[in-house]
């Protein structure tokens, strides 16, 4: 195929050229072809699954793990591709344990399955140092550990403590552990958002559930944990100048205030009017606070980058 240039004087701005179309066709046919082929293979095994001997079933899973492991260790590939390959490897371990549970009818509780899976892949997750894989690992461990928490008033406190431990680990551990790079900002931000979300949920629950007030000590502990989490989130968002996290603080405050208004104000005209005035004032105040802070941080960042480029040019 000829290489083509966008037509001179063309009225079609920003359209794909010949190279882009070639790339599109290659990606499209490769993705569709491999996807259909994989689906066909899976359906083939699914149809014949009951007829297969248990050693064959387990053998297929083990063979896949060994094949992907061999490819990861021997084939030259970019760092990112290798991390994706290790992620696939970790997924296949889960497949193996699922087949094992089905073949031997272990009737294990689901949290045992997730914990086993997580334990088996811990070393690979650590070595890969790939934060999307760490996120999946945390989910697996959580699905294994959280069902073990006692289902009483301590549940929420333990849940917040559990989240805080993970967050603290990823903030402080990279300074002391080898091969653990500093986590990207999206990772820590999302951990803080989830933790802060739990804190907001706890506060809203305390507002609405009067029965909890009978367990004064535990309620106080829950609120104290929520306060600690909130303070930590404020500290981190201001330190990192993270507008997303900063905004989520205000979203949480908005939700808590709405819960207070719904609980305390009547549902008649006067109550609704007061609620409307307070909500409007809160929303306007929140929006302005975020906008002002965003402009301030944006200005600071642009000044920092300007100074840096002046220094670099000077060198």
């Amino acid at each position: 195929m000829d290489n083509s240039i966008t037509l001179p004087g063309s009225d079609q701005a920003k359209t794909a050229d010949a190279k882009a179309w070639l790339r599109f066709l290659q990606v499209f046919t490769l993705t569709l072809g491999s996807g259909l082929m994989l689906a066909g293979i899976i359906f083939f095994f699914a149809y014949n699954w009951e007829l297969m001997h248990r050693f064959v079933k387990l053998g297929i899973a083990v063979a896949l793990i060994l094949a992907v492991f061999a490819v990861t260790m021997t084939v030259k590939m970019s760092d990112f591709t290798r991390k994706i390959a290790v992620s696939v490897l970790c997924g296949l371990v889960g497949v193996f344990w699922a087949i094992f549970g089905q073949v031997y009818q272990t009737t294990a509780d689901s949290y045992v399955f997730f914990l086993t899976w997580a334990c088996c892949i811990l070393v690979w997750v650590y070595i890969a140092d790939f934060y999307p894989l760490w996120a999946i690992f945390i989910v697996l461990v959580s699905m294994g550990v959280i069902p073990l928490f006692p289902d009483n008033s301590w549940f929420l406190t333990l849940l917040m403590l559990y989240g805080a431990v993970w967050t603290a680990f990823f903030i402080f551990a990279p300074k002391y552990l080898l091969n653990l790079s500093a986590p990207p900002s999206w990772f820590i931000s999302n951990m803080f958002v989830i933790e802060f979300g739990m804190a907001v949920f706890v506060v809203c629950l305390v507002i609405f559930r009067e029965t909890d007030m009978l367990n004064g000590g535990i309620t106080a502990l829950n609120l104290l944990m929520a306060l600690v989490v909130t303070v930590a989130t404020i500290w981190y968002s201001l330190r990192q100048k993270n507008i997303w996290l900063y905004s989520m603080l205000f979203v949480g405050a908005l939700i808590v205030l709405e819960c207070v208004f719904i609980k305390c104000l009547t549902h008649e005209f006067g109550g609704l009017l007061l609620h409307l005035i307070l909500s409007t004032a809160t929303t306007i105040g929140t929006a302005f606070a975020i906008a002002v802070q965003y402009q301030k941080w944006k200005k600071e960042k642009s000044e920092t980058s300007t100074n840096q480029s002046v220094i670099d040019n000077g060198k």
Binding site: L22, Q26, L32, G33, G35, M37, G40, F44, Y47
Partner: peptide
């Protein structure tokens, strides 16, 4: 049947992969 669907899927996949190699 599921087994025939799997053959059809594999054949379709193979055709698209052939198209990829041709391109």
């Amino acid at each position: 049947l599921l087994i025939n669907k799997s053959y059809l899927l594999m054949a379709s996949g193979a055709l698209f992969l052939l198209a990829f190699y041709y391109i």
